[in-house]
Design a protein around this nucleic acid. Sequence first.
DNA 1: CATCTATTCAATTGTTTTGTTGAATAGTTG
DNA 2: CAACTATTCAACAAAACAATTGAATAGATG
Lengths: 222, 222
Amino acid sequence: MATSSFKEQVYQELSRVTHAISHPKRMELIDVLSQRDFSVEELSTEIGMSMASTSQHLQVLKAAKLVKTNRNGNFIMYSVSDDSVLKLIAVVRELGFRKIAEIDRIIHDYNSDKDLLESLTLDELWAKSREENVMLLDVRPGNEFDAGHIPGAVSIPLDQLRNRLEELPKGQTIVAYCRGPLCVMAAEAVKILTDQKLKAMRMEDGYVEWKLKQAESATLSI
Amino acid sequence: MATSSFKEQVYQELSRVTHAISHPKRMELIDVLSQRDFSVEELSTEIGMSMASTSQHLQVLKAAKLVKTNRNGNFIMYSVSDDSVLKLIAVVRELGFRKIAEIDRIIHDYNSDKDLLESLTLDELWAKSREENVMLLDVRPGNEFDAGHIPGAVSIPLDQLRNRLEELPKGQTIVAYCRGPLCVMAAEAVKILTDQKLKAMRMEDGYVEWKLKQAESATLSI
DNA sequence: CATCTATTCAATTGTTTTGTTGAATAGTTG
DNA sequence: CAACTATTCAACAAAACAATTGAATAGATG
C-alpha cells in the first residue's frame, strides 16, 4: 500500500472538520450548544431526532474536536470545545447568507408574513439605544439566559410571554433577541407583542453574535 | 409531503456550503485556485484526478457558489468566487491545526527529516527584514507569480532552482515561500538551498495568507 | 453491591456519494 | 460552416453515510 503524501494526509485530516459540519443536523447541534451545555437527551428533543442518532452525530463532532463532554451526575453534558468553533459556523453562515440566493428567499418568505421586515443588528442596537431608551428582551429559555446573556437584557422566555405582558412597557421600544440568526423565537415574540399593540422589533443577531463580538474586542484591547 | 420548517430549510441550504468543502480533493482545489485561475485540465493534473472527476468536484463547488467560471478561448477558467472563500478555508485550517493532534504529528514527521524545523510566519518575516536584509524567494510556478506575489519577492520556480543557483546571494538569508501552509514547494527549495550551503529558511505562510492580510488591513484603513 | 438510567454500541437497511468509462455537447477557431 | 477540443453528462459499481432498532455498558445512586 502506497503511503499517501504529506498533502493528502493533511487534507484528509482537515476534512474531518469540514465533514463534521457538513450535515444540517450537526450544524444545528453546534448552534444549540453555543448557548449552554446540553445533555444528549435535551439535544435530541431540541433537534428532533432519536437519542441514538443524536448520540452518533455528537460523536462525529467530538471526533473532529468541535465539541467536548463532561459528566454531571447521570448526565453527560456536551459543550462547544472552543469559541473558534462558533467563529467557524459564523463564517459559514455569513458566506451562505451572502452567496446562496435560495437562503435569502427562505428568510424573506418567513419574515414577510408579518411586520418582521425591519430588524436590528447588534451595531444598530447600540446606535438606537444611544438615541432612545429601548428595552432589551431575551426570549430564550430561562436556563440559557442564566448561562449567559447580553448585559441589560430582561428575561421573559417565549412560552411565558403571553402571561407576562404587564411587565412590558407601553410606549417604549422593545427589542427582542434569541439564540441567533436561525432562531425564530425573537420573531415569534415580536408577532405576539405587536398583536398587543406594543412597540416591538427583533434583533437578527443573537447571544452567540454578542459573545463572539465580546471575545473579539477582548483580544483587541490586550 | 410536510414542508420542512424555516430552520430546517436554511440549515439544508447552508449544508450545501459545508458539504462542498467536506471532501479533501475539493479543499485542495480551492487551495490551488487561491493562486490564480485554472482550467479543468490544469486542475486535474494539479490534484491528480481524472478530468471527469475533477469536473464533477468543480460543479459541487460551483453549486455552493464557492467558485465561478469564465470562458477564455477554448478553456473554461475556474476561479474562487470571493476572498471570503479563502477566509473560510483559512478558518478551517487554523482550527484543524490547533485542535487535531494527528495533523501536528504529520507536519512534524514531514519537517523533522531535515533542518526544516525553523520557519517564519508573515509577521516574523516583517520583523526579521527590519533587522537584516533578507531575500524573499517565490518558488511557485512562474504564472502564479505573475498573477500576484508578495511585493519585493524574486521568482525562481522550484523546478528551475538547481539551474539558477548563481542568482542567489551567498551570505544573505533567503526566505522561501510558496502557495500556503500545505504546499511543500518552499520546503523542497530550502532542502536544495541548504544542501548548497546557502542560508535558507522557509516561510510557513504563503501567497494566500499575504493576500488575506492585505484585504484585512485594507478594510480596516477605510 | 444491586439497581437504575443516560448514553453508546452493533447490526441492518436504504440512501447518497464517489470514481470510472465512454459518449455527448457546446463553443471556438480556422 | 466544418472540424476540433475542452468540458460535461450518463450509466454503472463500489464505498461511505444515515437512521432505526434493540441490546449493551458505564457509572451514579440508594
